[in-house]
Amino acid sequence: MKILSGKWSFYINGTLIALFIMLSLYLFDDTLGMSDGMLAVSEFVRDSTEAGEIKAPPTLNWQLGLLGGILIGALASAIISGSWKIQFAPKDSGGIVAGIWKPIVQGVGGGFLVMLGLQIAGDSFWGQWSAAIQLSSGAWIFIISMFIVASAASILLDRHHEKGKGGE
């Protein structure tokens, strides 16, 4: 079935995302988000590290359930569509040595900054998306500033990279 194995158009994806957000507001009276789930995992890791032993895992709440559901859904969808493959480093990581350290530095550093920014702004990424739909000015300030900075820096870095290639 092509609907399961193929990619979906942006208007289907956009509509479904909007429906998901509305459905979560109706069913949970809250936005779909994983911040509390990730916070519980973070506290579990911290407590286990401090104690030097594996402590009791966090109690299953709805946000941890959502997190687990995303893992199952993305895994199933990737297998069905044929895009599932084990990859230890992104394709643009370079050679073997760079392929080891670059994903670690990029991943930990980038992930740290993304979550730091979200924590400072006071909501998860999905929460900001949902708040933007609810016409929250704060969410729009966050999304626009994030996109302008990320896009401008990406374009400048890309041009610099292309220039470097041309000079070789």
């Binding site: 740290f112 900054l113 920014g117 979200l118 966050f142 999304i143 994030m146």
Partner: peptide, 9 residues
Amino acid sequence: GGIICGIGL
């Protein structure tokens, strides 16, 4: 927060 998140992204 948006600027920091953008850099991380």
